[in-house]
């Protein structure tokens, strides 16, 4: 299980972006982290993967743990070795490498050649389109193929936990559906643990087991995905407007159930 306990993140030494975030991604489950643009979702993922350090960001409080082992303070490559792999938003392929070289780069932390070869085969079975394009520079792949490639590349690291940042962004609805079906299969068939960041709440809650809602660097609501799906506020929140047409914040809602502090 991956857990964040009361994480605080500061950029540039002064900009406080996460204000005490606690959440857990249970093993073999899809946990989704929802929230509007700028809420701090990407920052949360980078706090886990250690990639904040390269952006003058810092975890100033709290702990990140994977199966009881502390991850914050480790370097990014050490965190990948522990089994946590982040898939950036925006389909960040290595453009000048071929699709297959991208996948090889994903397995960089591994030395078991046999296992790598098997996993490569598995990725091609999961994403047959990639097999056909394996000799192409990844920069020339279509948006959908690139999204498959970055997920496949993360799978090549044989992660215990995969962190996905808005995989639906900028893709046609049919493609998004296909990719989400594959995420579901990765959970059901391989028991992969995923933390899925999305702005598209309806979609994410459809496949997730548990969900958190984030606003201005805080978790403001959480619950089983089935419960969140029924929650009228979620619907309203994601429409972004109330009936009067004004933007509404979760904190303004009277019947907003204050989230129980996780682990306290």
């Amino acid at each position: 299980m991956l857990s964040l306990n009361n994480i605080e993140v500061v950029y540039d030494g002064v900009i406080l972006v996460l204000r005490g975030v606690s959440l857990a991604a249970e093993e073999g489950r899809i946990t989704t982290l929802l929230g509007a643009n700028g809420a701090g979702k990407t920052t949360t993922l980078k706090a886990i993967s250690g990639l904040l350090q390269a952006e003058r960001g810092e975890v100033t409080k709290g702990r990140v743990e994977l199966d009881g082992e502390r991850l914050d303070r480790l370097l990014p490559h050490e965190i990948v070795r522990r089994g946590v792999c982040q898939v950036f938003e925006g389909r960040r392929v290595f453009e000048n490498l071929t699709a297959e070289e991208n996948l090889q780069a994903g397995a960089h932390t591994r030395r078991d050649r046999g296992g790598i070869r098997e996993d490569l085969e598995r990725v091609y079975e999961t994403f047959p389109a990639l097999r056909e394009r394996r000799r192409q520079p990844a920069g020339y792949l279509s948006g959908g193929e690139q999204q498959m490639l970055v997920i496949g590349r993360a799978l090549m690291a044989a992660p215990k936990v995969m962190l996905l940042d808005e995989p639906s962004l900028g893709l046609a609805p049919l493609l998004v559906e296909e990719i989400f079906r594959i995420l579901q299969r990765l959970r059901d068939e391989r028991g992969l643990t995923m933390l899925l960041v999305e702005q598209n709440a309806a979609l994410a809650l459809d496949i997730a087991d548990y969900g958190y809602v984030m606003e201005s660097g805080r978790i403001v609501l959480d619950g089983p995905a089935s419960a969140l799906r029924q929650n009228s506020d979620i619907k309203e929140f994601y429409l972004g407007l109330n009936e009067a047409g004004a933007r509404k914040s979760y904190r303004d809602l009277k019947h907003y159930k204050r989230r129980k502090r996780w682990l306290s």
């Binding site: 990639l51 792999c85 950036f88 290595f94 490498l97 780069a105 994903g106």
Partner: peptide, 17 residues
Amino acid sequence: VAMRAVADSQQVAMAMG
């Protein structure tokens, strides 16, 4: 391959360990 990955994008290379 890793060196070319670094040349392509340092940030993504870091994310791949």
